[in-house]
């Protein structure tokens, strides 16, 4: 799946991955790949601007760690991020449920006029 197809959902997906615990940028993109069974195979670079955006919005916070001769920036959810994720999750469930209902032609009471 391309980055374009995921536009608008990437922020929520990153927050969902971070709900499991703090992680650095590359670990997040790997978790997205693994959790989606390889469907969300985005260019790794796309995660870094998204994390900046989430941090500016106050939804994640970052800290720097040193180890193995290099620096690592680790992100974690803030309280605002948890609340935003809960809202995103609820609206996604409503949206995906409605799309599935229409796509699968479920309980249709409407009939086209002839």
């Amino acid at each position: 799946m391309t980055a374009e197809a995921l536009k608008g959902h990437l922020d929520g997906l990153l927050l969902a991955v971070l709900e499991r615990g703090p992680a650095h940028g590359y670990a997040l993109i790997e978790a997205l790949r693994t959790s989606s069974g390889g469907t969300f195979d985005l260019p790794t670079g796309t995660v870094y601007p998204a994390l900046r955006r989430l941090e500016t919005a106050g939804l994640v916070a970052s800290t720097w760690e040193k180890g193995d001769g290099r620096q690592r920036r680790t992100y974690e959810l803030t309280g605002a991020g948890r609340r935003h994720l809960a809202q995103q999750r609820e609206s996604w469930h409503q949206f995906s449920g409605a799309v599935t209902a229409v796509m699968d032609g479920g309980d249709i009471t409407w009939r086209p006029s002839t």
Binding site: P43, T44, G45, T46, Y48, P49, A50, R52, T56
Partner: peptide, 18 residues
């Protein structure tokens, strides 16, 4: 990681917003 020019443009946009 993708094209470095695209990555720098995307990072510049987000850092600019901050």
């Amino acid at each position: 990681f993708g094209d470095p020019r695209e990555l720098s443009a995307a990072l510049a946009a987000e850092i600019g917003r901050a």
